[in-house]
Design a protein around this nucleic acid. Structure first.
Lengths: 225, 225
DNA sequence: CGACCATTTGATATGGATCAAGCGATGTGG
DNA sequence: CCACATCGCTTGATCCATATCAAATGGTCG
């Protein structure tokens, strides 16, 4: 039985209606049992860093960012999570990041205790948990390699990554703002914007609108920028 | 039974004498079964990236670096591994990095197939594997946060990390060269050197020798540099 | 239409890279 | 035992990619 099958097999216990008001309280206060996919509105926090990690999550629709804010206010986005992606599966007792919906999204919240109990008896579930964490690790390793490259290389790699992950071969609809992209790539919005303009001028990409990118020359994108 | 106890319980099958000649062939060609700690000389490769990941490793003594070399020759050191640390435990079929001894070291090589078989029957071993990967993930996340900071902050954080990990409260003996540090922090040797000199001039650290650092003001080091 | 927000574009500043030279240990051969 | 080569590290001078500051543009919603 795969992880996802296992998760699906858990009978929804309760479904909470989407009636919290903006940032008033944390999403995770409300989602105690595992339930049906829950709507989260744009920019609403799903959990905060250092909160106890009682759940892990799967994106059903929309997009989620996990991030950390440094003391001086700088924000580093750790990852973007798209439909099908799990997030919040750190092994420790508390979350190491915060998570917010980028657009109105639906996420499935799963009680850690339930998964852990399942893993106890089902080796396959335990292995899936490990594999998922390993995939996350690989992504972080790739991110480290990104951060030592030039602005052009980072933006190009980001576009390729997004194209890859959304499945669309050479057209991407970005759910996130320039600020989100900048905070993910360790750049400023101005540099991201300028780099995109440069790529467009070089006919490597096209920008029908600011959130829509057409990859016109994957080859050039791959070989740096 | 803990992971380490489990690993200890595996009877050494063969011990290979340390008789390979420098880079002539990969260390991992020689270490087929799990055996007693094996000596690896300074700068000798333990495994290369994209080699099949047949083993995972534990540092017994010395220090190991895992790294990746980009097409243009830049090298990014992903992690330093000190005695007691495991490395090479990616979940995929092949290693995603290369590993080399920084100083003459001893490493324990463990067959993945043996560990996997063990994990199959022993939930505790499976859980340990997961926890270790989770710890690695956290370290990578911390590394990403490092790479968006200033040179001074990176160097300060590096010194604190090393002090933390070696256990010595305020004196560190660095096993690695300035180039290693630079490639870990995403800086140049010149910048690392200058930053250390600045910290010394500010009486935040002392440098009895280039490889030995005394932390004189942890507080200042924590609050940036 | 007008306010607002995200994005782009322009001008300037700067942190760290690069290029280049000097210095201090360690080791080797005469 | 000392000249000398080597290697890792430090220091200095200059350059450049990206940040920063500032303003213009454009799209969206009341």
């Amino acid at each position: 039985m795969s992880m996802q099958e296992a998760l699906r097999a858990i009978r929804p216990v309760t479904m909470f209606p989407p009636r919290w008001s903006s940032h008033a309280c944390s999403y995770s206060d409300l989602v105690d049992p595992m339930g049906a996919p829950l709507p989260v509105r744009r920019d609403v926090e799903i959990y905060g860093e250092s909160e106890p990690a009682e759940h892990l999550y799967m994106v059903v629709s929309g997009a989620v960012r996990t991030y950390k804010v440094l003391v001086d206010g700088r924000r580093q986005i750790c990852a973007f999570h798209l439909p099908g992606d799990f997030f919040g599966l750190e092994t420790g007792e508390t979350h190491s990041f915060s998570a917010e919906a980028i657009t109105n999204s639906k996420v499935l919240a799963i009680k850690r205790s339930v998964v852990m109990a399942l893993a106890e008896h089902d080796n396959e579930v335990a292995r899936q948990l490990w594999t998922m964490t390993g995939a996350e690790l690989r992504r972080m390793q790739a991110h480290v390699l990104l951060l030592i490259k030039t602005a052009k290389e980072r933006v190009a790699a980001f576009l390729l990554e997004m194209a890859e992950r959304t499945g669309a071969p050479d057209e991407v609809d970005l759910p996130m703002s320039r600020q989100d992209i900048a905070d993910y790539l360790g750049l400023t919005i101005e540099t991201v914007s300028r780099t995109l303009t440069d790529l467009e001028n070089a006919a490597t990409i096209a920008l029908p609108s600011s959130r829509r990118v057409v990859l016109r020359d994957r080859n050039v994108l791959c070989h740096c920028g």
